[in-house]
Amino acid sequence: MTHPGTDLRRHERREALLVLALLFPALAVVTVLLVVPLAWLAVQSVTADGAFSLEHYRRFLAEDIYWRSFLLTFRIALIVTVLALGLGYPVAYAAATLPRRWSVVVLGLVILPFWTSVLVRAYAWMVLLQRRGLVNAALQGLGLTDQPIALINNEFGTVLATLHILVPFMVLPLYATMQRIPRDLLLAGASLGGGPAHVFFRVFLPLSMPGVVAGTVLVFVLALGFYITPELLGGGRTFMVSMLVSRNVEIYNQWGAASAIGVVLLLCVAALFWLASRVVPVERIMGAR
């Protein structure tokens, strides 16, 4: 007969092995698809003509198109995030407070656009917003404008189309948080003398903050790396970081420069996540409990 302690240890070891075995496929996929390319990216970014070099990073300081593009990207991402929060909060609020069958309808309408590709939606906006598009025709037809106004090939079009695609990423985490706010707290607030506005600002809004942080970070980060929509609706004039990467690769065949931009953007996003995770746990930002 073996010692009970040995038995227990053997049991624990077996359990640890089982957990490892279960995790292996996921770990393998992540390693092959994420860790290896990222490492390759990092190596590329510090390699020039087959030798170690910081030349690609030096370019950030030397060429103002780099930092101007970063600045523009952050600005557009910020505008999109603020607008998404402004538009998404009331929608999420409605979905979280309406009776169940109506909240299903609201959420359905929010999720519906996910079923069309980003490309299709970008072209749809182009059809609507171009010089002789529906919107301009309507504005002129109503006599509101004399001539077509520029709605695409500029920041406006970029922001609008990006916003359209990213609003659901704001609404869903907001909804998830709001829906978990116990109704009793709102009733308690009212019974204790709080009018609707007082209860909203003193109880509902503070308790929905984790969702606000989660949605804000998600939308901001996604907007930072947005490519197709700004490419199509910005008309080459709204030169975002993602386009900088693609130009470096496609036109100049500069993989090292493109990698360096990618690494810098990645570090920016990582820093943002780190900041946000000090307010809200990362699992919650990603939509898990």
């Binding site: 009793d184 308690a188 019974s191 609707p196 109880v203 308790l207």
Partner: peptide
């Protein structure tokens, strides 16, 4: 409710966690 001036104690206390 907020104009009734009554105190309510809820089953699960309904304290504001924040």
């Amino acid at each position: 409710p907020h104009k009734r001036g009554i105190g309510v104690v809820f089953q699960n206390y309904a304290l504001f966690p924040h």
